[in-house]
Simulated assay, not measured.
Amino acid sequence: MLGIVGIAVILVMVFGGYMLAGGKMGIILAALPFEMIMIGGAAIGAFLISNDMSSVKQTVRDIGKVFKGPRWKLEDYRDLLCLLFELIRLARANPVALEEHIESPDSSSIFRKYPRIRQDHEAMDLICDTLRAASMNYDDPHQVEEVLDKRMDATLHHAMHSSHALQTVADALPALGIVAAVLGVIKTMGSIDQPPEVLGKMIGGALVGTFLGVFLAYGLMGPFATRVKTVVEEDIHFYQLIREVLIANLHRHPANICIEVGRQNTPHHLRPAFSDLEAAMRELKQDAA
C-alpha cells in the first residue's frame, strides 16, 4: 500500500508542479508513447541480455515486494519459534520419532500445524537438514554454525539478485534517455526548414526523452531496487532465527532457552512478546501430554 502511495505522490508532485508553473502536458503526452518505446524497450532488452530466464522470472516476482512488503509477519515468527520448540522437545525425548517428521515434512503432523512455513522450501530444508545432520552425530556447534553461515550468505546473495538487476536498469535509464533525446534532435535537424513553432515542439518532444530517462531512474526504478533490497534483508531474519535456535540446541541448552535465544535475536518490531510465546509453548506442552 505504501508503495502505491509513494508512486502517486511522485506523479502528483512532479507533473502537478510542472502544470502549476505554466507547463503544458500536450507536448509530453504527444512524445511519451514514442519515447517510452525507445527508452523502455531498450531498458527491457538490456535487462534480458544481462540476466538468464530464472533471474528474469525472479525479478518480475520480486517487484511485487515493493507493494506487498516483507513476507514474514510477527505471527509467522511466533509460529516458527513454536515449531522449533516442538521439534527440539521431540528430538530430546525420542530421536527416532523425529526422523519421520524431518524425512517426510509434507506428511508430518507437526509441520502441518504451520502451513505458511511448510510452503517455504528454504525454511523447511534449513530446519530438516540441520536436525538430520545432528541426528547423524554431526553436532559440533562451531562446524554447523560455519556451514549455516555459508548457507545464509548464499541464500542472501541469490535473493539480492533482483535488487541488483533493477538497480542496473535504473543506472542505465538516464543514458538511454539521452539516446532518445539525441534521436529527437536528429529528427529536428532534418526539419530545420520548418517554422519556429514547429521546431519548438519537436525540440520539446526530444527533451522528453532526457526527462523520462532520469524520471524513471530516480523516481521509480531506483526506489524499486532499494525497496526490494530492504524487504529481502528483513525476510532473511526469518532464516537467521532458525540458525540461532538450532545452534543453541546443539549447545544442549534446554528447549525453552533455545527458543528464547531465537526470540531475542528477532528484530524488535517482529519479536513476539515473552508472555505470548510462553502461553503458546505451554499450550503445546498440554497438547503433547
Results as ranks from 00 to 15, higher is better:
Gly22Asn: 01
Tyr77Arg: 02
Gly213Thr: 06
Leu74Asp: 02
Leu131Arg: 12
Val182Asn: 04
Val232Lys: 08
Leu183Gly: 01
Glu197Met: 08
Ile4Lys: 03
His101Val: 05
Ala280Glu: 13
Asp193Ser: 14
Leu156Ala: 08
Glu260Asn: 10
Ala21Cys: 01
Leu277Cys: 05
Val214Lys: 06
Ala154Phe: 05
Asp125Val: 05
Phe15Asn: 01
Val261Ser: 00
Leu81Val: 04
Leu98Ser: 09
Met281Cys: 10
Asp129Phe: 09
Ser163Val: 01
Tyr77Lys: 02
Lys68Val: 11
Ser162Ala: 15
Pro223Ser: 06
Phe211Asp: 08
Leu148Cys: 09
Gly64Ile: 04
Glu234Leu: 10
Ala133Lys: 13
Val60Asp: 04
Asn265Pro: 00
Glu100Ile: 14
Ala134Val: 14
Gln119His: 11
Tyr138Asp: 07
Glu100Gly: 07
Met136Asp: 15
Gly23Cys: 00
His251Pro: 00
Ile88Lys: 10
Ala30Pro: 00
His121Phe: 10
Leu241Ser: 02
Ala180Asp: 10
Glu99His: 02
Met19Cys: 02
Ala165Tyr: 07
Ala180Gln: 08
Leu212Gly: 09
Glu260Tyr: 03
Leu81Glu: 02
Ala181Thr: 14
Thr226Tyr: 04
His157Met: 07
Met281Trp: 13
Ser135Trp: 04
Ile257Gly: 01
Ile117His: 07
Ile28Asn: 00
Glu197Arg: 03
Ser109Lys: 11
Ser135Ile: 13
Val185Asn: 02
Phe215Ser: 10
Asn265Thr: 01
Thr230His: 08
His164Arg: 12
His161Gly: 08
Thr226Gly: 07
Arg71Trp: 03
Leu216Gln: 04
Gln264Asp: 04
Glu103Arg: 12
Thr130Ala: 12
Gln286Asn: 12
Leu176Asn: 09
Ile203Val: 15
Ser54Pro: 00
Thr188Asn: 04
Glu233Leu: 12
Met13Arg: 00
Ala43Gly: 13
Asp120Met: 11
His251Met: 13
Lys187Pro: 00
Ser135Lys: 13
Ile127Ala: 14
Val182Lys: 06
Ala206Leu: 08
Ile10Met: 11
Leu126Pro: 07
Ile44Cys: 12
Thr59Val: 03
Cys82Lys: 14
Ile236Val: 13
Ser135Glu: 08
Gly40Val: 11
Leu250Val: 11
Ile192Ser: 07
Ala123Tyr: 14
Val198Thr: 14
Glu283Lys: 13
Glu99Gln: 10
Leu166Cys: 09
Gly200Ile: 04
Met202Gly: 09
Gln58Ile: 00
Gln58Tyr: 04
Ser54Asp: 14
Glu100Phe: 09
Leu32Thr: 06
Ile10Arg: 01
His121Met: 12
Leu29Trp: 02
Trp72Cys: 09
Gly41Arg: 09
Leu74Met: 07
Val144Leu: 14
Ala154Gln: 09
Lys201Phe: 06
Leu166Thr: 12
Glu103His: 03
